[in-house]
Simulated scan of single mutants.
Amino acid sequence: MPKRLLIDMDGVLADTYLQFFRLEATVTGKQVLHNDIIGLAEGDAFPNYKKYIHNDGFFRDAPVIDDAVEVMEKLNKIYEIFIVSSAMEFPNSLREKYDWLQEHFPFLHWKQIILCGSKIPVQGDILIDDHFKNLDPFQGKTLLFTQPHNMGRDNGHYRVDNWREIEGVLL
């Protein structure tokens, strides 16, 4: 039986930070720089964070993180993959996330998508996520996907900076 690989969506597959940078520049005219937000939670880095994530299209229009599609396609042939994404806090994101996954990852079956409130009950062998709140309680192997909010600490998780590194670790 293949190993179960759980993969977060926002900040791992979908480039939500690029969305925040774009919206901040468009809405406020302020150019937020990557180095200025290292170690800051998204809500602290982007004052309009809550407004942005509740806007229609925020999750639907996020760009795909480089190399995610190609590497995911390879992983999907070897692992039992589930996309596990928190969506209940932002109910309008349910449809947007599903549609986004169908567009960018058409090789994933709808049964491989878990949109939930908490990831804690979802278990597997490996979890790739960018948030410690999801990685810390996980019982299996963890890969911390680098994003500005988690830079400067790793909490004992194996850090990966991009999808090519994930490919090297898991394939």
Rank of each mutant, 00 (worst) to 15 (best):
F21Y: 10
A25T: 13
V27H: 07
T28H: 06
T28I: 10
G29M: 06
K30H: 11
Q31T: 15
V32K: 13
L33W: 03
H34F: 14
H34E: 15
D36R: 01
I37V: 15
G39F: 04
L40I: 09
E42I: 06
E42M: 07
E42H: 00
G43K: 01
A45E: 01
A45C: 07
F46C: 08
F46P: 02
P47Y: 00
N48D: 06
K51N: 02
K51I: 04
K51S: 03
Y52H: 00
I53R: 06
N55H: 02
N55C: 07
D56G: 08
D56I: 05
D56F: 07
D56W: 04
D56T: 10
G57D: 01
F58P: 00
F59T: 07
F59A: 06
R60Q: 05
R60N: 02
I65K: 00
I65V: 15
I65N: 01
D66L: 13
D66V: 15
D67F: 12
V69M: 03
V69I: 14
V69G: 01
M72L: 15
K74I: 13
K74E: 12
L75P: 00
L75F: 04
K77R: 12
I78T: 14
Y79V: 12
I81K: 10
F82H: 14
I83N: 05
A87M: 06
M88P: 00
F90H: 09
P91K: 00
S93G: 14
R95K: 07
K97C: 07
K97A: 08
Y98I: 14
D99C: 03
L101R: 00
Q102S: 11
E103N: 10
E103I: 02
H104R: 13
H109Q: 10
W110I: 12
W110F: 04
W110S: 13
K111H: 07
K111W: 00
Q112H: 06
I114S: 09
L115K: 10
C116A: 09
I120W: 05
P121G: 10
Q123G: 00
Q123H: 06
D125K: 00
L127V: 11
I128H: 04
D129A: 13
D129W: 10
H131I: 09
F132V: 10
K133S: 12
D136R: 10
P137A: 12
P137S: 11
F138Q: 03
F138E: 03
F138S: 04
K141V: 13
L143Y: 13
F145H: 10
Q147R: 13
Q147D: 09
Q147T: 15
Q147H: 05
P148Q: 14
P148I: 15
H149E: 11
H149P: 01
N150C: 09
N150D: 06
M151L: 15
G152K: 03
R153F: 05
R153N: 11
